[in-house]
């Protein structure tokens, strides 16, 4: 992480505040705090701010809020930025039916890692993963923190259609497809949660950058039950807040 964040121009209507040039948890936590702080101030002329692994893109209307003025606002917001957000984990528990038809590439992951299915599931559910950012498709989260013994390269031939909710592994990354889309991740299971729902005006996406995901193994029957509920009337997944000391 840089000592001082860099302000980078990104056209006449956007400024990037860059905290690091690498994937770093500390930098990401800091930019999430800046994002929340700016959102809370509800500054006229800021259209939205978009977090990535290492930077925050602040989209603004340069006629209402010129660049120099925005720089001053961000500078002062950075000054009072503590790391209090560091101590709390907002956790979303994501139920996953592993293996079988829900996880057609489970055998690939087992043979690549040399672990049996039970062990893959155990390791995939034993560590919380941190959501650095959302991108690729609406609601798709870029997660860090996968148990490295599960790392498996992408499929040589990507699939043209992966159903929404599929949970996969690609190298050291893991994540869930938020909408039906093409992709090359090794699919090990499927979550019944609706990760992207454009018709939900309040929460079109379940996961927000800065959240932690805790995968939890469920049976196929349980999958069907939750899926039915989610499709029929919406399903509120378990969310919890824990202090960071619990998991080192």
């Amino acid at each position: 992480m840089y000592d001082e964040p860099r302000f980078l121009g990104s056209g006449d209507s956007c400024m990037v505040v860059e905290f690091s040039d690498a994937i770093e948890m500390a930098a990401n936590v800091r930019l999430q705090s800046l994002r929340r702080k700016l959102a809370a101030q509800d500054i006229k002329g800021i259209r939205e701010s978009v977090p990535t692994y290492r930077s925050l893109s602040i989209h603004h209307d340069p006629i209402i809020l010129p660049r120099e003025k925005l720089e001053r606002i961000v500078q002062s917001a950075l000054c009072g930025l503590g790391d209090e957000d560091d101590r709390e984990r907002r956790i979303l528990v994501m139920p996953v039916a592993y293996g079988g038809e829900n996880g057609p590439d489970m055998a690939n992951v087992c043979s690549h890692t040399g672990l049996d299915e039970e062990e893959v599931i155990k390791r995939h559910t034993s560590r919380d993963c941190y959501c650095y950012m959302l991108g690729f498709t609406p609601g798709f989260s870029y997660l860090g923190g996968l148990d490295e013994s599960l790392a498996t390269p992408r499929l040589k031939n990507p699939r043209t259609l992966i159903p929404a909710g599929s949970v996969g592994i690609a190298g050291k990354q893991t994540g869930a497809y938020s909408i039906d889309s093409p992709g090359g991740w090794q699919l090990i299971g499927r979550t019944p949660l609706k990760l992207f729902d454009p018709d939900d005006p309040k929460n079109p996406t379940l996961i927000d950058a800065g959240d932690w995901i805790r995968f939890s193994s469920i049976s196929d029957d349980e999958y069907k039950r939750i899926k039915r509920e989610a499709d029929a009337c919406g399903y509120a997944p378990e969310r919890r807040v824990e202090t960071n000391a619990v998991q080192g």
Binding site: R35, R47, E48, P51, H59, P138, G139
Partner: peptide, 9 residues
Amino acid sequence: RWGHQFRGL
């Protein structure tokens, strides 16, 4: 559709 880029939209 402004305001949803943080969701990847």
